[in-house]
Design a protein around this nucleic acid. Structure first.
Lengths: 197, 197
DNA sequence: CGACTTCTGTCGTCTAAGCAACACTGGAGT
DNA sequence: ACTCCAGTGTTGCTTAGACGACAGAAGTCG
């Protein structure tokens, strides 16, 4: 969307960022977040260590960016970005968060607090933004009891919480069913009872 | 082996060369050699066009390097580099050339003369070098009728010719059998009747 | 034929990345 | 306590690559 963020960028920058992220992904699966050093990453990526610091202040900033992109990708894959609010889309969003959180938990033990809290914050932020985006397209009901902002906040927290519970419950029941069952809860948070295709 | 050629190299150089080669491979399969432009390659590789010319004088030089590396890889895969002469190794070498030529023909129509002749020259050169390497290890027979050089030349041409024939005959019979059948021919060229495991 | 397009190869300028130092921190060992 | 050591950030200088512009070669079309 914004030409600043994604497209219009020096190819060199694009490539090194990509190779950093790729190296990070590999190492994450191999050793877990705590154990990977900046040295590891740069070595695996085939870049100089100083170059890393030209792009990210530290390991944590990289993780942040990483989660941001991974989850954003998950969202785009399900075409939730371009869509408007509907129970079906809400369902899909919940599925996306569940699977992302599930994968995260299996990738890195819950014991790594740094890791988990960073993931949580990032995912919630994006879900919040997405919900806000959806709600903006809906004309305000006269005498709205809660602001869009707060509805989005409540719902995004709820979604993330439900996703972690599902993950901890060994992913039972199947995502689709679980999402079906909890959609009403979140819809309630949004203060909406709209029914769309 | 030589630190000059492969390992001790600026990571940037390594990466851009690799991305050029990768882009070239893709485009070769898509459009054939004639149709790919330097622009295509650099665009696909995500590098600047001027950068391409910093590495290769033109499209043909790239093809040369490409074939060189591909075939060299094929040879190393079969561990023919470190080995000495034996009928078995000769067999393996013939198989390698047959399969390489076969793949080349299916990748690019024979009508592209530039392409084909460049491949031929490159492969023959490497086969020649390899045979020479093998022959050097064998003590000269008193009153040698032909020089090692010439034996290697004759054999390398013979091998390439036999490989193209096999390819044009729709790869019949199976490589292993075909190689079995023609080993004596080549061995004769080499002026050797040695029998080793 | 000339006008037009696309690709080529080259050059000068600017910036990203490499590299080799550096001082610093925290943890492991003896 | 101490040293040792592996990792961290940071810096100055060098080099590879980006970018834009250029003239020329090679089709293509009217």
């Amino acid at each position: 969307m914004s030409p600043t963020e994604t497209e219009t960028l020096d190819p060199r920058v694009r490539r090194t960022r990509q190779s950093i992220v790729e190296a990070f992904t590999d190492l994450l699966d191999q050793k877990g977040f705590q154990a990977v050093s900046v040295q590891d990453i740069t070595q695996q990526a085939g870049i100089n260590r100083a170059t890393f610091y030209a792009h990210f202040p530290d390991k944590f900033a990289l993780l942040q960016r990483f989660v941001e992109e991974e989850f954003h990708q998950e969202v785009e894959k399900r075409m939730l970005n371009a869509c408007q609010y509907s129970n079906h889309n809400l369902h899909e969003l919940i599925v996306a968060v569940c699977e992302f959180v599930g994968n995260t938990h299996e990738r890195c033990p819950v014991s790594e607090e740094h890791f988990q809290s960073l993931v949580e914050a990032q995912v919630r932020t994006q879900v919040h933004g997405l919900l806000n985006h959806w709600l903006e397209k809906i004309p305000t009901i006269a005498g709205t009891p809660v602001s869009r902002e707060r509805a989005a906040t409540a719902a995004s927290w709820a979604i993330y919480g439900l996703a972690t519970e599902w993950s901890r419950a060994s992913r039972q029941p199947p995502v689709a069913q679980y999402a079906d069952e909890v959609v009403p809860l979140v819809a309630a948070n949004l203060g909406l009872t709209i029914e769309l295709a």
